Every structure is written in C-alpha cells, then in structure tokens.
Simulated assay, not measured.
Amino acid sequence: MAATTTKHRIYTTSFASVYPLYVAKAERKGRTKAEVDEIILWLTGFSQAELDAQIARKTDFETFFAEAALNPARAQIKGVVCGVRVEEVAEPLMREIRYLDKLIDELAKGKAMEKILRA
C-alpha cells in the first residue's frame, strides 16, 4: 500500500481527546483553560459554543479544521514544534495542527497573549 493513501493517525484522532492535554499543559505552567480556548477560537474562527460543540461531538482533527474559518494571520506563526519548523510543514492539515501545537507551546512558555495571537 502506498504511503500517500495512509492518513496520519492524528487526522482521525478526536480533537476532544487531545483538548484536555492542551489545557493540562497550559495549567501546569500557570495558564488557564480560558486562555487555551481564546487561542483555539482565534486560530479557528469558532465561537465558544461552536468549540464546545466540536468537543461534544468528538470531531476528529480533519473535520475540526475542515469546519474552521482559519485565521489568515496564522501564516505569521513561525518556529519549531516537536523538532519541525511549522512554516515548512508541506501537508496543509498537519501544518494547521502544528500551528495549534506551537500556539499552546507559546502559552505554556509564558508568552504574552497579544504576542501569541499575533496582534
């Protein structure tokens, strides 16, 4: 079977299963669930109710990003997450996931919210 026909496991993973990990990472560093939500809402264009519905539906990452109205300013997100430069990730869906990972990392590292949200 060709590698191009195999989806990466994260694409079919439910966003709801990873979301608590994002929150826990932030909270371990003295940040809040509200800040995690603010980042996700900024990136995806979801309202809080829409985000809550995505979590309740246990939407997979592929659907989660397909239904999002992605923020054009996300292209300003640069740097390394998990040893990979986010701006160099070729696969579009994986790049979106890495953008989110990078924003959560920045939050956990104590970066100011206006810097995280590229304001």
Rank of each mutant, 00 (worst) to 15 (best):
K115F: 04
E50S: 13
I39H: 11
Q54P: 08
V80T: 15
I116T: 08
P72Y: 08
K109M: 08
F46H: 10
R95F: 07
I116F: 04
A69N: 14
V86Y: 06
E87N: 14
V36K: 01
I40Q: 06
E96M: 06
K25A: 11
A34C: 00
L43W: 01
C82R: 07
K58N: 13
T59H: 02
R57K: 15
E91W: 01
A66N: 14
L43S: 01
Y11Q: 00
M1K: 05
E67Q: 12
A26R: 04
R85N: 13
R9I: 04
K109S: 09
F61S: 07
F65P: 03
A53F: 11
S14P: 10
I40Y: 09
G30K: 03
A69L: 13
T44M: 09
I97Y: 12
Q48N: 15
A16R: 15
F61W: 15
A24H: 07
T44Y: 09
E114S: 15
F46I: 03
I104N: 00
K33C: 07
E114V: 05
E106G: 06
Q54V: 06
R95M: 09
A24D: 06
L41E: 05
K33W: 02
G30I: 02
E35S: 00
A68T: 11
Y22V: 09
P72Q: 07
R98S: 13
E88C: 09
T44I: 09
F46S: 04
R118I: 05
K102Q: 13
V89G: 01
I10D: 13
A112I: 03
D52K: 14
D105M: 12
K29V: 00
E27V: 03
K58A: 14
E35H: 03
N71I: 07
P72E: 12
G79T: 05
V86L: 08
I55M: 11
T6A: 01
A24F: 08
V81R: 09
G45N: 11
A66S: 14
F64C: 04
L103N: 05
K58P: 05
A66L: 08
A75L: 04
T12S: 11
E88M: 15
V84Q: 11
I55W: 11
W42T: 04
I116D: 07
L107P: 12
C82I: 00
T44D: 06
D52N: 15
A49I: 06
L41Q: 07
E67T: 13
E91D: 14
K109H: 10
N71W: 06
R95I: 05
A66M: 06
K78M: 10
Y99N: 15
T63Y: 02
S17Y: 09
S17L: 07
L93D: 05
G110N: 13
S47C: 12
P92R: 00
D60P: 04
G30D: 05
L51D: 11
